[in-house]
């Protein structure tokens, strides 16, 4: 290993940590405001499939279409992909997602789940395509 390698590894790790560490602090503060429910936006092929509230009670959402089947489970203010019949199963490895901005993606089925904050915080009321 040369000196350049060590410099490079150090640089990459520092950049990655600079993004990861602030998230840990963020998590603590977001734990407190569970009184406002967040929603999960489920899109298939770029089109909105369903928007569900992330409740503490369990509920399952099945997404079935010509691409295949995905089963999502909502519990404890978060969402998780529990089953899918896609070839690579990468979507199952996303695990339990419960933070605003978190996403679950199933590439072969063109499915995306995105967690949105309680209110529209970004100041955009609507977008025109």
């Amino acid at each position: 290993m040369k000196r350049g390698d060590i410099l490079l590894i150090g640089l990459v790790v520092v950049i990655a940590l600079a993004f990861i560490i602030p998230r840990w602090f963020d998590r603590d503060s977001s734990e407190k405001n569970h009184n406002e429910l967040r929603t999960a936006k489920i899109t298939v092929d770029g089109k909105l499939f369903k928007e569900v509230e992330l409740t503490q009670e369990e509920q399952t959402v099945e997404v079935e279409n010509e691409h295949g089947l995905n089963i999502l489970k909502i519990h404890d203010y978060g969402i998780e992909m529990i089953d899918a019949d896609c070839p690579d199963k990468v979507c199952l490895s996303f695990g339990f997602v419960d933070r605003t901005g978190g996403t679950i993606i199933c590439l072969p089925h063109k499915l995306m789940v995105e967690i949105q904050g309680p209110a529209e915080e970004d100041g955009i009321d609507a977008t025109v395509k």
Partner: peptide, 8 residues
Amino acid sequence: LSFIGISI
């Protein structure tokens, strides 16, 4: 850089 750096 060695192969390690390049493959990273």
